[in-house]
């Protein structure tokens, strides 16, 4: 394939991964921002969302679209509830101590993974997309007759992948409205800025934390439900989204929501675009090193303010 169409294809694919990544990382970012804890089990909530989506879709068995719609409502809710319970039962008891939280969430990671293996099994399971048309895309070329269009070999995207990008934008807008325009958002932001002060003003901080932890997990689950018709549910799938979300949250500037979205787009897209220039594994090496170097030379993240 020529350079131009290749780049376009890689960018389109990058946009799809960026969309899912933005949702997943947003969950982690909100949890980090408000609660100041590192949730290592975040990837497992992603995995749970995908596994539940498969389970719901195969239970319903009607038109794929029906299963999908039910899954995207139920799965994130269920995952959110599981996470909120985990917060109440475990994290609250250890007082959100940063290091103990890491161990506790690693424990949670093991438990969730093993539970998924025992119930869902070790195989990768597909979910039928609600709709999936292949859309061929044109590219331009200069011929003797001036600018012309042609359809390069393999340059295409599917309608479902476009839908994933659109859905992610809508949901992220919803989250932004929730954070900025509602009472719940106000309480969250207040807690984020000063936990003691909020408590003094009568904010039930414990309950807020449970909601926030649930919301963060639910966002990961939404990302998973969206991606599962493209990728497939598997009990070990949580690993990659966890690493990538971590990176996005740090690069975006800790707890900064716009920063998280910008970083997700940057990382999702660059992963695609770098792959145009290097062989696959080398592209991964370059992309990983690039992220490390950004942090080394701009440790506060892209959007964060310099440390005072």
């Amino acid at each position: 394939m020529e350079f131009g169409p290749h780049l376009l294809l890689a960018s389109l694919e990058g946009a799809v991964s960026a969309a899912v990544l933005a949702l997943t990382a947003m969950g982690l970012s909100i949890v980090f921002g408000v609660m100041r804890i590192v949730n290592v089990a975040h990837g497992e909530f992603f995995m749970l969302g995908a596994v539940l989506a498969w389970w719901i879709a195969s239970m319903i068995g009607a038109h794929p679209a029906v299963g999908f719609v039910v899954a995207i409502v139920i799965a994130p809710l269920a995952v959110g509830v599981i996470a909120a319970v985990a917060d109440k039962v475990i994290l609250q008891r250890i007082g959100y101590d940063p290091e103990r939280t890491i161990v506790a969430t690693i424990g949670l990671l093991y438990i969730l993974q093993q539970a998924a293996l025992m119930t869902f099994g070790p195989d990768a399971r597909p979910v039928t997309p609600p709709f999936n048309q292949r859309i061929d895309l044109p590219w331009f070329e200069f011929t003797k007759n001036g600018l012309g269009l042609f359809w390069p070999w393999g340059l295409s995207i599917t309608s479902y992948k476009l839908f994933v990008v659109l859905a992610a934008i809508l949901i992220l807008t919803g989250v932004w409205l929730l954070m900025t325009r509602t009472r719940f958002g106000l309480i969250m932001r207040a807690t984020q800025q000063d936990r003691e002060m909020s408590q003094a003003f009568g904010v039930p901080v414990d309950n807020v934390f449970a909601y926030v932890f649930g919301l963060g997990a639910a966002l990961a689950a939404i990302g998973a439900v969206l991606v599962v018709p493209v990728q497939q549910a598997h009990y070990l799938m949580g690993h990659d989204p966890l690493l990538l979300s971590f990176i996005v949250v740090i690069i975006g500037g800790l707890g900064s929501l716009p920063g998280t979205v910008i970083a997700a787009v940057l990382i999702g897209m660059s992963d695609g675009i770098i792959s145009v220039f290097f062989s696959p594994t080398l592209a991964k090496i370059v992309a990983t090193m690039a992220v490390a170097m950004v942090l080394v030379f701009r440790p506060q993240g892209l959007v964060g303010k310099a440390a005072s």
Partner: peptide
């Protein structure tokens, strides 16, 4: 030399990224 330019969570992630690079290499 490189990673100590960062601190806290950023240090943790930079180390993770370097290790990931090592694995891929």
């Amino acid at each position: 030399f490189l990673a100590l330019r960062t601190r806290d969570v950023a240090f943790m992630i930079v180390m993770l990224m370097f290790a990931q690079t090592g694995y891929l290499i």
